[in-house]
C-alpha cells in the first residue's frame, strides 16, 4: 500500500488512544472502589497517577499535531485524526474526575449518605466510556448512538441521588460546618460521576463524526 509509514502512524495513533482509554477506565474504576470502601491508599494511588495520564495526553496530542502538520490527512483519515484529537481530551478529563473522586475519598471523614450508591452510578457511566471506545475501535455507529441514549439513565440516577442529599439537608435541624462539607462534597461527587457519562457521549459523538461525518451528537 502507498504511504505505508503514514498508514502505520494512523494505526499507531489508534492503538495508543485505546491504551490511554484502558488506563483511564481502570483508574476510574479504582477511584469508584476507593470511594465506596474509603480505601485511602488506593485513592492516593489514583491522585498520584494522574500525572501519567496527563503525560499520555500530551504525547498523543503531539502525535495528532505531527500527523496534521507532516502528513496532511484528508477525508476519512482527517476525521479519524480530528476525532482522536478530541477523544483524548475527553479521556484526560475523565481521569481528572477520577482524581477528584480520590480527593473526596481522602476528605470525607464519614459516609453521611450510605443510601447513595456512587459506584452503581459510576459503573454505568464507565460502561458507557467502554462502549464508546469499542465503537471507536470497531467504527460501530449503532453502538455510538446507543451510548448517547444511555446517558439519560445516568442522569436519572444522579438526579435521584441529588434529591436524597437535598431531602437530608432539609430534614437536618442544625447543620454544622461538617454537614455542609459533606453536602458540598456529595453534590460534587454526583456531578463528577454524571460528567463521566457526558464525556462518554462526547466520545460517541466524535465516533459518529469520524465514521459517518455526522455531527448530530456534537452539539
Amino acid at each position: 500500500m502507498p504511504r505505508e509509514s503514514y498508514q502505520n502512524q494512523l494505526a499507531d495513533l489508534e492503538r495508543r488512544v485505546l491504551e490511554m482509554a484502558d488506563l483511564v477506565t481502570e483508574r476510574t474504576a479504582q477511584s469508584l472502589e476507593a470511594f465506596t470502601y474509603k480505601d485511602e491508599a488506593l485513592a492516593r494511588t489514583i491522585i498520584d497517577g494522574d500525572a501519567e495520564v496527563n503525560e499520555r495526553y500530551l504525547e498523543l496530542e503531539g502525535a495528532c499535531i505531527d500527523l496534521l502538520a507532516l502528513q496532511q490527512p484528508v477525508a476519512g483519515d482527517l476525521r479519524f485524526v480530528a476525532a482522536s484529537f478530541k477523544i483524548i481530551t475527553d479521556l484526560e478529563r475523565i481521569a481528572d474526575l477520577a482524581t477528584n473522586l480520590g480527593q473526596y475519598t481522602l476528605q470525607a471523614e464519614r459516609n453521611r449518605y450510605p443510601d447513595i450508591d456512587i459506584s452503581y452510578i459510576g459503573e454505568e457511566a464507565l460502561s458507557m466510556v467502554g462502549s464508546a471506545m469499542t465503537a471507536y475501535e470497531t467504527r460501530d455507529t449503532a453502538l455510538a448512538r446507543e451510548v448517547a441514549a444511555r446517558d439519560d439513565e445516568v442522569d436519572d440516577r444522579c438526579e435521584r441521588a441529588s434529591d436524597l442529599v437535598v431531602r437530608d439537608l432539609i430534614e437536618t435541624e442544625v447543620a454544622d460546618e461538617t454537614t455542609f462539607a459533606d453536602v458540598r462534597r456529595m453534590f460534587l461527587t454526583i456531578r463528577d460521576v454524571e460528567r463521566v457519562g457526558d464525556h462518554a457521549v462526547n466520545v460517541a459523538a466524535r465516533v459518529l463524526y469520524m465514521v459517518e461525518n455526522d455531527d448530530e451528537l456534537i452539539y
Binding site: 500500500m1 502507498p2 504511504r3 503514514y6 490527512p73 484528508v74 477525508a75 476519512g76 483519515d77 482527517l78 476525521r79 461525518n213
Partner: peptide
C-alpha cells in the same frame, strides 16, 4: 471533497491509498 468525499475511489485517491 477533502473532508467527506462521496466516492470511495476518490477517498482512496486523496488519502494516498492508490494513485
Amino acid at each position: 471533497v477533502f473532508s467527506n468525499p462521496e466516492n470511495d475511489r476518490v477517498e482512496d485517491y486523496i488519502t494516498g491509498k492508490f494513485g
